[in-house]
Computed example of a mutant assay.
Amino acid sequence: MWHGGAVEPADAPVDQQPVLREPAHRVSRRALLMWTLQAVVVIALLLAAQVVWWLVDDAPSRTPHWVVGAVWLVAGVTYAVAMPQWRYRVHRWEATPRAIYTQSGWLWQERRIAPLSRVQTVDLERGPLAQLLGLASVTITTASAAGPVTIHGLDLPVARDLVEALTAAAVTEAGDAT
């Protein structure tokens, strides 16, 4: 969770600036279920499209439907089983008095650092599945061309504490967030 303390000035010596490293904390284990349910929704939509194709196609042979449906089903089940596990292994985060560290992705992985002196906004977001599972995402918008830093799959109390701590730290930070 958040490790509070005095925020160091943005003009700290280079050897004291935050470094890109693996963050210390994993997301909630319930994120596995959320990602699995999201994958199941995608699979259901693909199979529904398959059924529509079956109904509107007047071809004499249904073999292509069975082959494509089987491929979608095998690929979808593989995705729904493997992707959440892999994402959980990769997704990490950490907030320090100087920066927020994140690591995300599953096929394409990204490790980012956002110095608190660059933070412009801190947002908490909860979609329907996240609400059902007591999870939230925290998005930290910075003065960076790379875009915002988002941490998905946090327990709601952890996300609220993080938003509060980052907001308080960003307000007291001497940087101009540009």
Rank of each mutant, 00 (worst) to 15 (best):
88 Y>F: 14
149 V>D: 02
165 A>V: 14
45 L>F: 14
162 L>T: 15
51 V>G: 00
40 V>D: 02
111 R>Y: 02
114 A>H: 03
164 E>Y: 09
34 M>F: 03
36 T>Y: 04
76 G>R: 07
37 L>D: 03
94 E>F: 02
11 D>F: 09
139 T>W: 00
54 W>R: 05
122 V>E: 08
124 L>R: 11
33 L>T: 12
61 S>L: 11
74 V>M: 03
11 D>P: 00
132 L>R: 15
7 V>N: 10
71 V>D: 03
176 D>H: 11
94 E>Y: 03
153 G>F: 04
31 A>Q: 10
108 W>C: 00
47 L>H: 13
12 A>E: 12
126 R>K: 12
86 W>N: 08
147 G>P: 07
45 L>T: 10
171 V>K: 13
72 W>S: 09
102 T>H: 06
29 R>C: 00
79 Y>H: 14
121 T>M: 10
48 A>D: 07
57 D>H: 05
173 E>L: 01
28 S>Y: 10
25 H>S: 10
159 A>E: 04
115 P>D: 13
142 T>P: 12
24 A>S: 11
114 A>Q: 07
18 P>C: 09
143 A>W: 05
19 V>W: 01
83 M>A: 15
166 L>Y: 06
62 R>N: 09
177 A>T: 10
145 A>Q: 14
115 P>I: 03
26 R>M: 01
148 P>Y: 04
142 T>L: 03
49 A>C: 13
96 T>Y: 08
46 L>F: 13
9 P>Y: 07
150 T>Q: 06
51 V>M: 08
2 W>P: 05
172 T>H: 05
114 A>C: 12
57 D>K: 03
71 V>W: 09
36 T>M: 12
164 E>R: 14
53 W>C: 01
106 W>V: 15
22 E>L: 14
154 L>V: 04
81 V>I: 15
49 A>P: 00
94 E>A: 07
157 P>H: 06
133 L>C: 07
98 R>Y: 01
22 E>W: 01
104 S>N: 09
10 A>R: 11
149 V>N: 03
57 D>Q: 09
146 A>E: 14
13 P>A: 12
56 V>G: 01
143 A>Y: 03
23 P>H: 04
73 L>M: 11
112 R>C: 02
141 T>Q: 14
53 W>K: 02
51 V>E: 11
171 V>E: 14
166 L>T: 05
164 E>A: 15
128 P>F: 06
94 E>I: 02
105 G>K: 12
129 L>F: 13
41 V>W: 13
178 T>Q: 11
138 V>G: 07
164 E>Q: 14
135 L>N: 10
20 L>R: 13
37 L>F: 05
41 V>G: 01
56 V>C: 02
9 P>R: 13
70 A>I: 10
140 I>M: 04
100 I>F: 09
76 G>P: 02
118 R>M: 03
61 S>G: 08
123 D>F: 06
83 M>L: 12
102 T>G: 13
85 Q>R: 15
99 A>G: 05
113 I>Q: 11
85 Q>H: 11
29 R>E: 12
49 A>Y: 06
95 A>Y: 04
22 E>T: 15
74 V>D: 06
80 A>E: 05
130 A>Y: 07
44 A>Y: 04
31 A>I: 08
178 T>E: 10
1 M>Y: 01
13 P>Y: 01
162 L>A: 15
112 R>V: 00
113 I>A: 09
30 R>V: 00
38 Q>D: 09
60 P>H: 13
99 A>C: 08
70 A>R: 11
30 R>Y: 10
162 L>E: 04
6 A>D: 13
47 L>C: 09
